[in-house]
């Protein structure tokens, strides 16, 4: 079973890497959206430092949403999703494997890019370790919840905008606890409680999102 999941992950990652443009588009969006904030609120370093954690996370959420409509769409269009549904692997695990692949090609690049963008926003030095930790815990949740949203909108009209409408409210806890952790670290307070709650949210999303995604895919193939 793990081997089958591994095959799906490897296939999805390979397909995305071969295209290459997807990852770059997401990263460029992350960069541009972040760069808009200093242009909007002014270049004053103290203001930017105060806002950095929130801005980074909001832009990461938006970048993640942008990447979602590819998650199942290609497989849905060419019929391989039907095959995966009929295959021996439970559909929930198929969804989980696709979530993992999505995280490798979007979550991981976001984690790697975030410190660089943090420099642009003058993030206080104490925040970097927590930025990494919160990103490491938070981006898998974005992929999980996002996969549920992407599965729900399969075959819908106006898929892309619809995903954002469904998924962004569900991302709110991630935003709150991740930024809370970073702000606590910057203020010299313990960030651990925030990070632990973030981990608890991840633990909730881990079974819930594959279940919802699989249920939605079954509706779409009925």
């Amino acid at each position: 079973m793990i081997r089958a999941m591994g095959l799906i992950i490897a296939r999805d990652v390979r397909l995305t890497l071969r295209q290459g443009t997807d990852i770059i588009m997401i990263l460029m969006f992350f960069l541009i959206a972040t760069a808009l904030f200093p242009l909007g609120v002014g270049p004053e370093p103290n203001i930017l430092a105060r806002m950095a954690s929130g801005v980074l996370w909001v832009c990461a959420l938006l970048a993640a949403v942008l990447s979602l409509d590819h998650l199942f769409q290609a497989d849905y269009d060419d019929g391989s999703l039907d095959l995966l549904t009929l295959g021996p692997l439970p559909l929930e695990l198929v969804v989980l494997a696709k979530v993992a692949a999505h995280w490798v090609v979007t979550g991981l690049p976001l984690i790697l890019a975030a410190p660089v963008l943090a420099l642009l926003l003058n993030l206080p030095t104490d925040g970097y370790a927590t930025l990494f930790m919160s990103m490491a815990l938070g981006t898998p949740i974005l992929s999980l919840m996002g996969a549920a949203g992407a599965a729900l909108t399969l075959g819908a009209r106006r898929g892309g905008a619809l995903i954002a409408l469904l998924v962004l409210p569900l991302y709110i806890p991630v935003l709150i606890f991740a930024v809370g952790a970073m702000d606590a670290a910057i203020a010299g307070l313990p960030a651990k409680p925030h990070l632990l709650i973030l981990a608890a949210v991840l633990a909730t999303a881990l079974p819930l999102a594959p279940w919802a995604g699989a249920a939605a895919i079954r509706q779409s193939l009925d």
Binding site: L152, A156, L166, L170, A212, A215, Q219, S220, D222
Partner: peptide, 10 residues
């Protein structure tokens, strides 16, 4: 049917 899945997730 799909929206019922969403309402449960919500």
């Amino acid at each position: 049917r799909t929206a019922s899945v969403l309402v449960l997730v919500g």
